[in-house]
Write a protein that binds this DNA or RNA. Sequence first.
DNA 1: TCCTAAATGAGATTTATTATCTTTTAAGAG
DNA 2: CTCTTAAAAGATAATAAATCTCATTTAGGA
Lengths: 141, 141
Amino acid sequence: MKTTIENIRNQLSDKGLKVTPQRIAILEAVYGVGGHPTADNIIEHIRKNNPNIASGTVYKVLDTLIENKLIRRVTTDRDVMRYDGVMGKHHHLYCTECDLIEDYIDEELDTVLREYFKNREIKGFHIKEFVLQIKGTFDKC
Amino acid sequence: MKTTIENIRNQLSDKGLKVTPQRIAILEAVYGVGGHPTADNIIEHIRKNNPNIASGTVYKVLDTLIENKLIRRVTTDRDVMRYDGVMGKHHHLYCTECDLIEDYIDEELDTVLREYFKNREIKGFHIKEFVLQIKGTFDKC
DNA sequence: TCCTAAATGAGATTTATTATCTTTTAAGAG
DNA sequence: CTCTTAAAAGATAATAAATCTCATTTAGGA
């Protein structure tokens, strides 16, 4: 699934959202900037071509995209928010040396986890989804 | 392992940290306030008995406790930091309705995960630790 | 092409967190 | 037990991420 401009326009309009240049640029940036960008990374990236975008707009658009399930937040133990354009089931590699967070997609792992919890109820809790945080270091670090 | 005051004093002095009333109160609060408290939850809790504690002190002490591996941060997709006094391997239940985060301790799960990744190298990445985020809802929510 | 609700821009505001600097204190030495 | 001093706490100022407000602009249907 390539993320062309046309594709991005469709994602927005399919959700009933107005297709604005800002929204396109922000969604493109979330897809394009690797390692799960912060709002600031996204602003910096977009300003290269579109220097006049307001930072408030970026925050507002990111929230709108999250509400409409086009992107999601990434959980971290830092105080700056990071964003993720991959909406399918997946897990994350957290590097303890650099601050990159990479995707880890593994269908089999999902099956293993689902199976494991099939016979193991957690009393008083209804499971919806698993996200495994795999912490360690990249070789390059 | 009960967490008596004496126990807390020892944890601090074992790390070569000065044993101050503030540090004791803060560590006690991290243990005592359920659901993984924010700095603000901790400040509020402590001020009941110790109204004069400075909020800057709480943040500084929390950092010190983290550096000395007496507590850790909890990862979330919110912009307020939360803290965890349980240092052993464990996982977390995230409620999507309320904002409680509960511990989930499961030795067997750790074994399953370790086994699973024993024959499944992630190229370019050296695994140190797993934390499973189990997202769902508590029955009471 | 026009109209209007929705989106953006600019900038003020809030709030969690950090930094600075002075005063106080824990705890080891004598 | 007292003295000394490095470390910690308190008070408050400073940052910075994120939110809010409101005037202006714009997407997209009529």
